[in-house]
Design a protein around this nucleic acid. Sequence first.
DNA 1: AATATAGTGGGGAAAAGTGGGAAAAGGTGG
DNA 2: CCACCTTTTCCCACTTTTCCCCACTATATT
Lengths: 152, 152
Amino acid sequence: MPGKLFRGSSPRSIDPKGRLMLPPEFRDVLVARSDAGGFMLTTYDGCLVAYPQPDWDSFEEQLNRLKSSSRLVRDFKRLVLGGAEEHVCDNQGRIRLSKSHLDYAGIGKDIVLVGQGSKFEIWDQTRFSEVTSQNFDGLAEELSESGIDLPI
Amino acid sequence: MPGKLFRGSSPRSIDPKGRLMLPPEFRDVLVARSDAGGFMLTTYDGCLVAYPQPDWDSFEEQLNRLKSSSRLVRDFKRLVLGGAEEHVCDNQGRIRLSKSHLDYAGIGKDIVLVGQGSKFEIWDQTRFSEVTSQNFDGLAEELSESGIDLPI
DNA sequence: AATATAGTGGGGAAAAGTGGGAAAAGGTGG
DNA sequence: CCACCTTTTCCCACTTTTCCCCACTATATT
């Protein structure tokens, strides 16, 4: 599916008028994947997750196909669908995060944009460094028991 | 099925006269789905659930088709049918929640309106953050066992 | 040095949001 | 059954925020 992918992270900050500029690399990927360059931003794992429009559409369709008979599924949809907002950059490549997004992601002023292949994420800087400073030995071990040996 | 969907959440509050303003995006979806913009609001999962008139009508029809032979079905109808109230926004896009709705949803002053595709929900802020701060890893795993791999 | 691209700042129109006055409706007590 | 009081509704006017665009500075590239 994918040609261009979101990769790498860029530290950013929110300007006095509340605007956040996306790195040009990400903007390029966005226009490559959906020609208008629009994307959806939703909430998960304490950060904001951005999907180019076409990817979001199929994701949403999957969500709507899920049977809503269990409370857990309904709550999951509340988080993901309820967190979804459409975004388009202005002429300078900036967006404005909503109050509830800032809130959910605990975003103060310093931000990291993190490429994740077909999507990217927006993190509060402090939260992100907590995530990345974890010890992953447990996982590596678990994987190696399933015969997966990562070249780390 | 339809084009415009309810998405995203907006934090709101009830004004001194007891009025709650719907976000413009939601109002747009309402008029798109039912041209008068009227909707039904009922009670479930500890929140208020809003259905555009046409969606409600077919929902209600399904409910009425249910055999009322079990107590559980009757109680369910008591909750859902008994909790249903019709609403129309005023010129500024505001509605007034009834005492029993405020009560059922445990609504104090701070509220979140949550888009859920073809419907939206009204939550007390505190209750809603409990919902969204859950850990959904169990669900993700369960889904992936049924062959559904969400792009989260 | 010149040109293109990245990044910053801000003005101003339009939309969103707030508050309140006054009419209508509904409820209560005599 | 009527008069009075309270609550609700409807609409107008004001304030605040958001959005869209333009202009400027800085950085990089050839």
